[in-house]
Simulated scan of single mutants.
Amino acid sequence: MNDFLSTYGFLMVTMVQAGLLGLSLYFPFQAGQLSLASPGFYALGGYTAAIMLTNPAFGALRDSLGNGMFVLTWVVAAVLAGLLGLIVGVPALRLRGIYLALATIAFVEILRVVSLNLTITGGAVGIFGVPQPFGFADRWQYILLFGPLLLLVLLFTRQLERSRVGRAFRAIREDELAADAMGVNPTHYKVTAFVIGAVLAGVVGAMSAPLLSSWNARQGTFDASIAILAFVLIGGNRSMWGPVVGGALLTAVPELLRGLADWRLVINGLVLVVASLYLPRGIVGALQKLGKARPPQRPAALPEVKG
């Protein structure tokens, strides 16, 4: 068991991490918004944790709180990501479709450039030596953090989808003008979805900084935006299980095929192409459609006519 965990434990953690990041993008999708901002909030959360856990200015607070300092970084990252999400979301979410996608890509790039030029973030080098929480000695132990967070987020998402807010999200996604005519405030609910996704991405970033032991500007890039978008589209953007399945699959395939050298990248690309062409609603959407399909009914026999 120890050999299995030492070999595949980090992969398991990154699969769960990818699912959480996919869910952070899933919330804006629920409200019909093509947002690619999650890597920016993820990077913000990671920098928040890395700075609070390594900067001498927080030394006294770290000494007094002990392991509670790690929990505090999650809370601070959530608050900062939520506030920034609100500030960015109010003007940006007046845009639609590809224009919103471009605006959120610009947001990610702005944060990356700013982090490259600040002293507190370590500039281009980044921040190293981020301590491990709760005495963790192996990276597979982070499943004890990311696993419960994933369960909590799934439970929250399930309740949200069944609530009035979730119904408003779906109404806006299907027809924003009709939803507005029915008394649903599109701007309010779109910003709400955006902020929820931002908070989740910020918390995941704060948990990920100790996992990686370092943090730099490469954590929040345009490439990361496309990767997280692929998690949602390949897994399915109409079900909360879609980002989880897509994130786990697209994270695991390249690693499991590592023995094939450069061919693993070709196979990974083929998976993306095939899924895009033949699974327009994602893997989970295809499975749901298959499960709802009924077997053909045999026609009833005609009654015999007695002469």
Rank of each mutant, 00 (worst) to 15 (best):
A171Y: 11
T54M: 04
A50R: 05
G135V: 05
T157Y: 15
W140I: 02
S239K: 02
V76G: 04
A124G: 04
L65H: 01
T119L: 10
T251L: 02
R281C: 01
A50Y: 03
M52N: 07
V71C: 01
T251E: 12
M52Q: 07
L116G: 08
P131F: 05
A261I: 05
V13P: 01
L265F: 12
E176T: 08
L200D: 06
D223C: 01
P295H: 09
R158Y: 11
L150W: 03
A275Q: 04
A106S: 14
G307K: 03
G46H: 10
L250N: 08
T73W: 03
V153G: 04
F128P: 00
L111D: 01
G59L: 14
I143T: 09
V125H: 08
D180F: 10
G285H: 10
A92R: 01
V245R: 04
P56A: 06
T251K: 04
A293C: 00
V114I: 15
L61C: 00
L290S: 08
F70Q: 04
L20T: 08
N216F: 03
I51D: 00
G46W: 12
T54F: 08
V113S: 08
G129Q: 04
G235T: 12
P28D: 06
I51H: 00
A209Q: 09
I127C: 07
G235A: 13
Q30G: 15
L5S: 08
G236H: 01
R298D: 11
M240P: 12
F156C: 10
A49W: 06
V232L: 14
A124L: 10
L270V: 14
L211R: 02
Q132H: 11
E304T: 13
M12F: 13
F107S: 01
N185I: 06
S276V: 14
L145K: 00
L144D: 06
G220T: 10
W215L: 00
V232A: 08
K190F: 07
A293L: 11
L272P: 05
F169A: 05
G129C: 04
R298W: 12
L44N: 04
V114A: 11
R264Q: 14
G9Y: 02
I110M: 15
F231H: 09
F41L: 05
